[in-house]
């Protein structure tokens, strides 16, 4: 039986749903880069105060600013999607889905507040 198989190239452009998915996945680039940046900071911290302060200085460059701005937007989107799909990924819960999402968002708010105060 002869059949025709359509190509997949550019599939993510075919539907807004897929674009949002790709955006969510794109957050990983920034999360990886951010972790490497922290790792670099840790390295500088281990070296000496001067080197650590240099690293801190580099954080106020325009490049760093732009990076952080993108990273912040995407990681917030990542947080939102993470908890939005949470009911599907958790083991069976006696709670309604909406409550799980609300709980997740509340946890983000709590963590954020705590860290804003502590750091």
């Amino acid at each position: 039986m002869k059949t025709y198989i359509r190509p997949m190239s550019g599939w993510w452009k075919r539907n807004p749903f897929y674009l949002w998915y790709m955006l969510r996945e794109a957050s990983c680039v920034f999360i990886t880069a951010y972790a490497l940046m922290l790792l670099w900071g840790l390295y500088r911290l281990q070296q000496s105060r001067i080197q650590y302060e240099e690293w801190r200085e580099s954080l106020s460059s325009p490049l760093s600013f732009a990076f952080h701005a993108f990273a912040l937007v995407l990681v917030v989107y990542h947080s939102w999607t993470w908890f939005k799909i949470m009911p599907k990924t958790l083991p069976r819960m006696p709670l309604p889905d909406g409550l799980v999402v609300v709980g997740g968002v509340a946890a983000v708010v709590a963590c954020t507040t705590a860290l804003m105060v502590l750091i």
Partner: peptide, 16 residues
């Protein structure tokens, strides 16, 4: 990252 990512990134990027 979902829990602490936003706050950490804000702090390192925008809070000198």
């Amino acid at each position: 990252s979902a829990l602490v990512g936003p706050a950490l990134i804000y702090k390192t990027g925008f809070s000198s």
